[in-house]
Nucleic acid binder design. Sequence first.
RNA 1: CGGGACGUAGCGUAGCUUGGUAGCGCGCUUGGUUCGGGUCCAAGAGGUCGUGAGUUCAAAUCUCACCGUCCCGACCA
Length: 575
Amino acid sequence: MRWSQYFIPTLKESPAEAEILSHKLLLRAGLVRKLTGGLYTFLPLGLRVLRKIETIIREEMNRAGALEVLMPALQPPEIWQQSGRYETARDVLYKVKDRANKEWVLGPTHEEVITTLAAGEISSYRQMPKNFYQVQTKFRDEIRPRFGLMRAKEFIMKDAYSFDATDEGAMASYRKMYDAYARIFNRCGLRNFPVEADTGVIGGTHSHEFMVTAETGENEVACCEACQYAANIEKAVSGIPPTAAREVGAATEKFATPGVVTIEALSKAPHSVPANRQVKTLVYIADSQPILVLIRGDDQLNETKLMARTGAVAVRPATPEECVATLGANPGSLGAVANVPATVRIFADERLRGANDMTTGANEDGFHLRNVSLDRDIKVTAWFDLRTVRAGEPCAKCGKPLKLRRAIEVGHVFKLGTKYSEKLNACFLDADGKSKPCVMGCYGIGVTRTFQAVIEQSNDKDGIIWPLAVAPFAVCITPLVVVKDSAVMQLAEKIYAELTTAGVEVILDDRDDRPGVKFKDADLVGFPLRLSIGEKSLANGEVELKPRGGEIAFVKAEEAVAKVREFLAARAQAT
RNA sequence: CGGGACGUAGCGUAGCUUGGUAGCGCGCUUGGUUCGGGUCCAAGAGGUCGUGAGUUCAAAUCUCACCGUCCCGACCA
């Protein structure tokens, strides 16, 4: 490709809309342009990168035995009603109407479609296992599109769905995808790692997310440095000890705490009750029912865990009015010891199990209770792990301290079980002639997000540093004189032709611009190797090879093509 | 949806407090100049100052509403 014939609108300055580095570079390097919030056009150079990532994904999916299909993006709402997600996922569903005023939805994902397909086509255990995948544009009515391609209204996703006759089969399918994902992200040049994950509204029993380490990531992950334990903060647990038991005190005792409405205030004089001897009582509305959540005073509730453990589809903190209606007191004086209506369930964090000599609100504004013993004084409906892990806590597996890191989620694998196959009737006959629902798994990769994650992880002050496997062009030839028939240009053309013939993806910067401009652009765009040809070095019969981010090497002009191929082969080998 | 910031040429911005001719840099066009890390000189083109109402003799500037963008929270690949 000749640069002058191509379209690479680089920008000297970053558009004000871009906040994070990868977003700025995406725009500056001429890879994408924004149409409007959360909607982007891929320019020719960006599309080349996108195709490379897709190719890697396809190769690895095919290698893992998955079969490519292409499903409609436009879907009938009926199958969403059947799965129950017309309600539970309604916030992200784009809905459109046709001329007859019939409603359709734009697919945010395809469990309903693929399960409908399986219901019609898979009738015997002999047809399984099967894994279908596609690379397709998804639509999600995001509350807040953000960070360029990271969170968009429309994005490209690779989604795969496995169907198995047995649970063991489903686990094997899951494992295959897990392994394929690790290969895919490694080939893309990403520093990535899998973490245990919550299953969210998709549902299911077993789940891992593939994370890319990045300060700007939207996810927080707890990792053990010593063993392999890593989990999304929404799911992470630690081996922190339970609350120390003390001498069982007398009966609970009410005491006045006028104006004291926070854990911290109560921990100070004159009351001086340390936060770890307080019980924090939270009123939540779980699927429109009030519930109580008990957490130790120095811990933070993890709402994702609350949803997962209680099975609630939506939870939110109650308003002060709702607190008064439920317990007769305002936040700051709430407790679960007395005046809790029988219909209100009480969920307590494991760390409070057996705790005594605790202090909590008295359900009377301006009063607290001391000498509270959880077993004796509170009717706990169920004990769950509900707290949020903090950095430095001991790993539950090996006891070494946990670290908290930020990361970008680029892939997610789920073992779904039979949730969708039951609802959408995807059943088969097993060897005994019994009808059973297929055991499913689903596996997503955010392709466009992966694209940006590579940039986020691979750059320097001058621009992007593309890993060879996803670079838009492997080599940029930069002649410093573009006068036709000049020795420099003749050599550039010759090397360009030879590399092209050899199947190397090469771009020839034939623009009549000053060297500085061309160097800056090549660095910004981030081609893995630059081959510069100038009059000075050519006087010695040499040209320059400069790996992006590396040192210049001078090589004989006649050896240039061989050296380039050597470099690329070594680079390809290394990844 | 709640909280915050902002909207002036393709991009980055000044001007707004204190109302009166819309300015600069980059990019773009033309001519010249230069030619190993975003040359220099000259001449140009390009603006409903987000939209709509209002106040005023007069609004980019003051008021209100709406739209949009970005940041913080809930959603997720």
